[in-house]
Structure formats: C-alpha cells, structure tokens
Amino acid sequence: MTFDILKAGILPCQSIETLIATGAITSQTPFDADQVQPASLDLRLSDRAWRVRASFLPGQRLVADRIADVSMHPIDLSGGYVLEKGCVYIAELQERLSLPKGLIARANPKSSTGRVDVFVRLLTDRGASFDDVAEGYEGPLYMEIAPQTFSILVRPGTRLNQLRLKAGEPPKLETRSVGVDLRGGDIVGFRGRRHAGVVDLENIDGHDPRDYWEPLTLRRGELLLDPGEFYILASSDEVEIPVDQAAEMTPIDPSVGEFRVHYAGFFDPGFGTDEAHGAGSKGVLEVRTHDTPFLLEHGQIVARLVYEPLTERPTRLYGEGGSHYQRQGLKLSKHFKVWG
C-alpha cells in the first residue's frame, strides 16, 4: 500500500484519519473521538504491562521476545495500577501500525507526561532506536515507562505519548533558540518534591500542587540546579507555530550545560498563534540536572525549536475546542489545580 501526498512533510489530522479509515493504523478498541491531534495521534495503554529489570532495544528481535528476557513479573492494568518511581516498565499499546511505503513515524511524550517527570519511549519490533518507526513497519507498539519523581496511577486508555507521521524527508524550515525565563514573576519555576503521593493521570485538576511541588522565587535572575532534581520552568520568549507547520523542541549540545531539557517535544500547528485564538504562549521547560550542580541564568539558551512543514494545512488547529496549555505561561501539568 502506498500513500499519495503532494509534498514531503508531517501529516495533518485529516491524513491520519485516512490512515485509520484504510487500516494502516488499527487499535484493539475503538479510537477515541479526540485521539487525533492537529498533527499527531495519541497512543493509549492496553491492559498488559511488565515490570522489567532493564531497559533495552530490540535490535533484530521482537519486543515480546526481549521482554521475556528481562521481565520480573507481568502486570494487569485493567483495574488501574500504580507504576512506582525509580522502576522501569514496558507496556503494550492498543494501536498497531501497517505503514504504507513512503511514511515513517516518530513518537514523543505528551506535554502532561513530561511535566510529571515520566520518561517514556516507543519500542517497535526489530527497532534500532527508541521513538523512531521505520518506513513500512508492520506490527505492534510498546512503550517503556520510567517514572522519575512521582509514582503514577495508569489504566487502559491512559495516553502517555503521541505519534507524528512524516512523508518523505521534509526540510527543516527554521531552527530557533529557546532561552529560559528567570524574571517572569515572583515564582519563576517549580521543583518536584521527592516524597510526594501518587499522581492519578486520569484525575484532571484533582491534585493540590503544594503536595507535589516547591515554588521557586525570584533571585537575581539565576537559579542553581541541584543534581537529580526535577524543575518546571518557562521559556523567555513566546512560542508560535504557524498553521501549516509543526515543531519539535530538541536538547542543546550537552557540552554547554549539565542538564536535560524538555522530555515532551512536539508542538502542533496553531500553538500560540492569533488564528488559533491563543497568542502569547510560553514553552514550558522540563529540566533535570545531571551529576553536577549548575547555575542557570535568565535568558540562557537551553533548547532548540525545529520547524517542519505539513503536507497540507490541518482541518483543526491546536487549542480549537479547548486546551490546558494554550495561552500558557509558567504552568504545571493538567493534573494539578492552579497554583494560588
């Protein structure tokens, strides 16, 4: 099967819906009405998972065979299950791919996943790298899940990552540097509390942020990052994604900073734009330090935003119909009540 396109680029929502209608993307259960985003598809947990003793790449083997090598015990998610921080899990996803010739795919954590410091990566059979799906791939999808700061409660249908599909080799239209805002207000960021309770990922606006986060106050436009801690910060500039483009935030060269930024990197068309009725959206930065304390200064470049074209304008834009993150400033994930 081939997929006819007019040009190379990221597939918009209507093309993803065509792939679903033609059987290139299938699921164990009916797709949710809001599962297709403007330029990506949310992926959902099934009821099967495993606690594993080590992360792995399949190499030339099936994921199921590699799970058998490293599994500690199987897990039934059907009644809800707490994934403990500091542990590694593999979960089978409900969706399955049969990609037409000319299409590849790439996965990334959803914004809400990154903001609660849950590290997730997509696995495919015989995959040589995490998160990348090869042209013509036919088979199941799995996810590695590693909660870092908070333990999380998940169920079948919980969405932790999303899939972006690409036709051909779209050009990189623009790369913008992203700085950090350490002068934006009395609170410039949040640091995760080490011994907080469980975050129920289906309980929206249901958690008191004070039980999970420590606010960071303004101090001369700089912030000392402690090793092993997790921070939520905001970009110094507003982010806008044109309606015919999508973007991915990528880390900078580690030689210029002892930290990792932005687990969740996809920005959909219309984010922060006038046309999507949401001008003035900051990029929220998920920051984790490595082994060395690091002094971060206001405006310091911490990431890059890479823009790519869509094959055509999407029929829906980011924020249409409501979003927790359109017109955002410094903001925690949707699971927490507004700080104040």
Results as ranks from 00 to 15, higher is better:
M72D: 12
M72E: 15
M72L: 15
M72I: 13
H73I: 03
H73Q: 14
H73S: 11
H73V: 03
P74A: 04
P74I: 04
P74R: 05
P74K: 05
I75M: 03
I75G: 01
I75T: 03
D76Q: 00
D76K: 00
L77W: 05
S78F: 02
S78C: 04
S78L: 05
S78I: 06
S78M: 02
G79N: 09
G80D: 11
G80A: 09
G80H: 07
G80I: 04
G80R: 09
Y81H: 13
Y81N: 02
V82S: 01
V82C: 06
V82R: 03
V82F: 01
L83G: 00
L83P: 01
L83H: 00
L83Y: 00
E84R: 12
E84D: 06
E84Q: 12
E84H: 07
E84F: 01
K85T: 07
G86F: 11
G86A: 11
G86P: 12
C87H: 09
C87N: 07
C87K: 05
C87M: 10
V88F: 02
V88H: 06
V88D: 07
V88K: 04
V88N: 06
Y89I: 05
I90V: 15
I90L: 09
I90F: 04
A91S: 14
A91R: 03
A91C: 15
A91Q: 04
A91N: 02
E92I: 00
L93R: 06
L93N: 08
L93K: 07
Q94F: 01
Q94Y: 00
E95G: 09
R96M: 13
L97N: 10
L97W: 09
L97Q: 09
S98K: 14
S98Q: 14
S98G: 13
P100W: 14
P100L: 13
K101I: 13
K101P: 10
K101R: 15
K101M: 12
G102W: 12
G102R: 07
I104R: 15
I104W: 12
A105E: 08
A105Y: 05
A105N: 07
R106S: 14
R106V: 13
R106T: 14
R106G: 14
R106L: 09
A107L: 09
A107N: 14
N108Y: 13
N108G: 04
